[in-house]
Structures are given as C-alpha cells and as structure tokens.
Amino acid sequence: MIDADRLSKVYARGVYAIRDLSLKIDKGEFVFLTGPSGAGKTTFLRLLLREELQTEGRLMVHGRELASMSSGEVQTYRRSLGFVFQDFKLIPGKRVFENVSFVPRVLGVTVEQQRRRAFQVLKWVGLQHRMSAYPHELSGGEQQRIAIARALVNEPSLVLADEPTGNLDPDLSLEIMNLFREINARGTTVVVATHDRELIRRVGRRAIALAHGSLTEAV
C-alpha cells in the first residue's frame, strides 16, 4: 500500500526533515507513526498527501509513484484519501452537516448523495443530533469526531491522521482511537502520527518510531 524507499526531504534551510527513510505499510494495516516533536512525522504525512515533494528517494502509494503524478492525477489520488488534523480544520462559517457534505459537494456528487453520505457518517460518529450546530459550539472531542466523519464521507482507502488527539484529554483520545480502530476494522488502511506513547500502548498496534527523520528501534 505505502512503500517508501530511501526517502529524504530537505526543507529550504538544509534541514533533513526525513532522512533516508525506508518503510512499508500493508493494505488494511493500522500503524502509528511516533517520535518526539521535530522527528518528521508531519513531513512524512505531508509527503503522503502529496502536499510536499521528496528531495530524494521514492514514495509509492497504491503502486503509484507520487512525485511523478500530474496535477490531474494528484486530484484523483487525493480523492482516495481521508485526513484528520490536530486542529480539526473545520470550516468555521459552515454548520456541522455542511462541513461534512462539503467534500462530496465539491467533488460533484448529487445533492441527494451528499445528504445521504453526510448523514450516514455523522450517525456513525454519533453526532447526528449536532448536525445544525456550528463548529465553535462543539467541544474539542466533538469537533474531532466531525473531522473524522468528514474524512470518511468519501469512503477513502487510506486515512491519514496527524496528532488527532493532540488537543484532547486521555479519555477522549481513547474514544477517538476507537473510531480509528473501527474504520480499520472495515478494511481501511489507517496511519496515525502521535507523540503520545501511552496512547499507543493502550491501543496496541504496530508503531513506527522516527527520530531526526530516520527510523529508530520499534517500540
């Protein structure tokens, strides 16, 4: 599914954010990406989102080399991804339901389908009763569940999450992780970046540890 081969990413000032990184993640896996702040977790996810291009090496997803994609292919590729961020990235001016249905809407899905899918995922994260609230009216945990609903609305084959529980307390964090486990149980590949080792221990899945952009020993 994901195949990184001797991958390096150097930002403008000559800092190696990722250095000579080789790893494989199989289809249907649930993997944690861990390491201290500055280890390169976000950079790796941004390479996977194709928000950044690597400096050296190769990164393949679904058997396709990301760097060689045309902009049209990038659009198509991104439609197969779901993403979740630490700061939720909900659209402040839109209601919960519109936030979720926004994704199928801008992908040209019919209004009927937009509604059906948005309602389905909102029900799945247990927030269908907050449909007409605005994001700022929700708690952090609720906002992140909305963001997860949005990530799922397009039925992605790969879900990427960057510190999804960074702003949440431990109980809520575990709740969010349970959602990811459920997503994974339905066959979706899930990659979660977190520096929270305690959380990883409690969830108990494979963890890839990074330090200074390279692999360190697995936890």
Binding site: L49, E51, V74, Q75, T76, Y77, R78, R79, L81, F83, K89, L90, I91, P92, G93, F102, V103, V106, L107, G108, N154
Partner: peptide, 16 residues
C-alpha cells in the same frame, strides 16, 4: 481560505 484548503486536500476539480 478554510474551504480552499479542504478543497485542495480532497482533490476538488479546478472548476470548483
């Protein structure tokens, strides 16, 4: 800007 960021990340067509 929020909408635009999401649109970019989900691969919305240029027309949108």
């Amino acid at each position: 800007r929020h909408e635009l960021e999401i649109m970019r990340l989900v691969g919305a067509p240029m027309a949108y």
